[in-house]
């Protein structure tokens, strides 16, 4: 494809990204570095601040449990799920904006989302994280990494691999326009299990890959091998998703009050 077409594709995906994803990397980094006119996030660093901070957490789907400390961990886990389900909807809208995506076989669209969406969500989490913690609730709350590590097992094991990945991923210093293309590349993976018609998916991905390569050359002229480094991250991502799904399966078996959101159940069932 012509360079002008590749640039137009990059612009289109960046616009869709800004339209569907409410918390951009630019905004998240501004909040994390304190360079923002907005409110400083509420910090959750222990059970007491978790209970205080719950008023800020988007919890539309949470059943009304009583406010006891012993259920706080599960209740927090439920509000995370609710936000994740909303994020899946955002990613779906973004996927539909990728030129050619909605023309693919509908079953293949489902497969691409089923396998791609957790990878996309993990990439989107990276800009919200630093080595000390993560923004949640649209940037209104900062939850410390130490607090997440202090939760009882297996909850304490859920976020640590994402922090390790994110801290490394953030050193690549992608911006939101780079991220938009990378997310589209992830979604358009032609090797997902059960795809019916791989060729058109690979063709779409190839065009987006060309656009990403050009984007990185123009946007990061001094960052050598950035394109190759980024593609290598896709391998790490698959392992993180596999481990995450296994952890959720463990939770389903061991937690009596465990409720898994129906959309997340659909995505994780028979995934890996």
């Amino acid at each position: 494809p012509e360079a002008a077409d590749l640039r137009a594709l990059a612009r289109h995906l960046y616009e869709a990204y800004l339209k569907y994803f409410p918390l951009t990397k630019a905004k998240a980094r501004a909040i994390l570095s304190g360079k923002t006119g907005e409110k400083v996030p509420f910090v959750i660093h222990d059970m007491k601040s978790l209970m205080e901070g719950e008023q800020f957490i988007n919890c539309r789907q949470i059943p009304s449990l009583d406010h006891q400390q012993q259920v706080s961990t599960l209740r927090f886990f439920h509000s995370c799920q609710s936000r994740s389900a909303e994020a899946v909807r955002e990613v779906t809208e973004f996927a539909k904006s990728i030129p050619g995506f909605i023309d693919l076989d509908l079953n293949d669209q489902v497969t691409l989302l089923k396998y791609g969406v957790i990878e996309v969500l993990i990439i989107m989490m990276s800009p919200l994280m630093n080595k000390d913690g993560t923004l949640i609730s649209y940037g209104q709350i900062f939850m410390t990494r130490e607090f997440l590590k202090s939760l009882r097992k297996p909850f304490c094991q859920m976020m640590e691999p994402k922090f390790e990945f994110s801290v490394k991923f953030n050193t690549l210093e992608l911006d939101d326009s780079d991220m938009a293309l990378f997310l589209a590349v992830i979604i358009l993976s032609g090797d997902r299990p059960g795809l019916l018609n791989v060729k058109p998916i690979e063709q779409l991905q190839e065009t987006v890959l060309h656009s990403l390569e050009l984007q990185l050359k123009l946007n990061h002229p001094d960052s050598l091998q950035l394109f190759a480094k980024l593609l290598q991250k896709m391998t790490d991502l698959r392992q993180i998703v596999t481990d995450h799904v296994h952890l959720i399966e463990l939770l389903k078996k061991t937690e009596v009050d465990m409720f898994l959101h129906p959309l997340l159940q659909e995505i994780m069932k028979d995934l890996y």
């Binding site: 609710s82 489902v110 129906p262 959309l263 069932k269």
Partner: peptide, 20 residues
């Protein structure tokens, strides 16, 4: 198709199709 009912709905409807 039944196995991925909500994903199908999300893909086929553009505005708030599912009560998440």
């Amino acid at each position: 198709k039944e196995k991925h009912k909500i994903l199908h709905q999300l893909l086929q409807n553009s505005t708030s199709p599912v009560d998440l």
